[in-house]
Computed example of a mutant assay.
Amino acid sequence: MTDVIDMGEFGEGFRVNPHPAYARLRAEGPVHRVRLPEWHSEVWLVVGHEEARTALAEPRLSKDGAKIGLKSLDEELIGKNLLVTDPPQHTRLRGLISRAFTMRRVEALRPRIQQLTDELLDAMLPRGRADLVESLSYPLPITVICELLGVPEMDRAEFRKMSTEAVAPSSPGSEHDAYVRLGAYFTDLIEDKRAAGPSGDLLSDLIRTTAEDGDRLSPDELQGMAFILLIAGHETTVNLITSGVHSLLTHPDQLAELRADMGLLDGAVEEMLRHEGPVETATFRYAAEPLELGGVRIDRGESVMIGLTAANRDASRYPAPDTFDIRRDARGHVAFGHGIHFCLGAPLARLEARTAIRSLLDRAPDLALDGPPGEWLPGMLMRGMRSLPVRW
């Protein structure tokens, strides 16, 4: 009989620094049966790099809980989206959104991202010290994704509260309430855009996107798409920028190397994604049929969590995995997933992080920490800190 590891036994320190716990688990095997205190349930947790990549691309591990009689909160209260569907439905949805959310569209945002970054730094730098999250890491990606989708500026503060509770709930029940409010918000937003007609933003284009065979997104699918684009389009980038800057400031040798050669920036961002990526575990997968993974049998109907943070520090893939090294070849990391569910917004997140970090380092040559970081986000989905005090 498989031993069950109670994740609650790792204590409060697990939230701040889960890496020793994951290292201990990896030393004992790549896949474990664990108990999650927040859900009072048992799941399989994948902590090995090779096994994580295999699981992320394994068609027998379904994203659609309906196949085993489950329904996720986002599907129940908002609508079908890329995170809760399998082929052929996932293929259809991704194909429709890819018609509007193209690489050309992302690249066209480059000047606006630079302009927004410059404006935020113009406001921040005269103060001499700031919370990086409030001053740069949060406002940049939320403004970019809201402008891209066409979310009114006056809605953004309230949207932030709902979004944060949806991905990192602060109390029992707050996640459900956030999904209810987000569902109502997206319903109203889509109806307003439908009535207003074409306006050039991504959500308006998605409302009118049609495939060659006449296929279009249904109202529920539009809500699901708006949800996943808005949430995933900024929450992950906030954490990437914040954790990336934190890693540089706590590794002064690496910061000095980057300042001496900004040509290392692209590789540095990939190492930031590997070393302290913005998503700790991928959203649940469910065994649609029995399979073996990492030497253990997973029965039909069992839930599987893939540890992206754990996999990215597997010594069998990355020598000295706990070392932050901007010259490392970090290719193969799973910070954005792998396979057909690879993050659609990865190019946009990379562009925003590179722009923000380059501009910050250029304009704040004496940048340093101004105290310890704020609280790390609760739960095992997102990996990031609520605040990061800096000075210059």
Rank of each mutant, 00 (worst) to 15 (best):
M1N: 11
T2Y: 05
I5M: 05
G8R: 11
E12N: 08
P18V: 03
A27N: 03
V31W: 07
H32Y: 09
E38I: 10
W39D: 11
L45V: 06
G48S: 10
H49M: 03
E50A: 15
E51S: 12
L56P: 08
R60W: 10
L77T: 05
L82G: 06
D86N: 12
R92S: 06
A100Y: 00
T102V: 13
R110Y: 01
Q115A: 15
L116W: 01
T117I: 03
L120A: 07
L120V: 12
D122N: 12
L125S: 12
G128P: 13
C146E: 10
L149T: 07
L149W: 03
P152Y: 11
M154I: 12
D155N: 10
R156K: 11
K161Q: 13
E175L: 13
Y179V: 06
R181Y: 04
Y185L: 07
T187V: 14
R194I: 01
R194H: 09
A195Q: 12
A196Y: 00
G197V: 04
G200R: 09
L202V: 13
D205F: 05
D205Q: 14
R208G: 07
D215Q: 14
F227H: 13
L230E: 00
L230D: 01
T242V: 02
G244N: 02
L249E: 06
T250F: 04
Q254R: 09
E257H: 11
R259D: 07
G263E: 08
L265D: 08
G267A: 07
E270I: 04
M272Y: 01
M272F: 15
E276C: 02
E276L: 09
A287Y: 08
E289L: 01
E289H: 04
S303Y: 06
L308G: 00
T309W: 00
Y318N: 06
I326E: 02
V334W: 00
G337R: 03
G345H: 07
A349F: 08
L351T: 12
E352S: 05
A353D: 02
T355W: 07
A364P: 12
A364S: 14
P365S: 14
L367H: 11
A368S: 15
L369S: 07
D370R: 10
G371K: 10
G374A: 06
E375A: 14
L381R: 14
G384V: 05
R386T: 15
V390A: 03
R391F: 05
R391P: 13
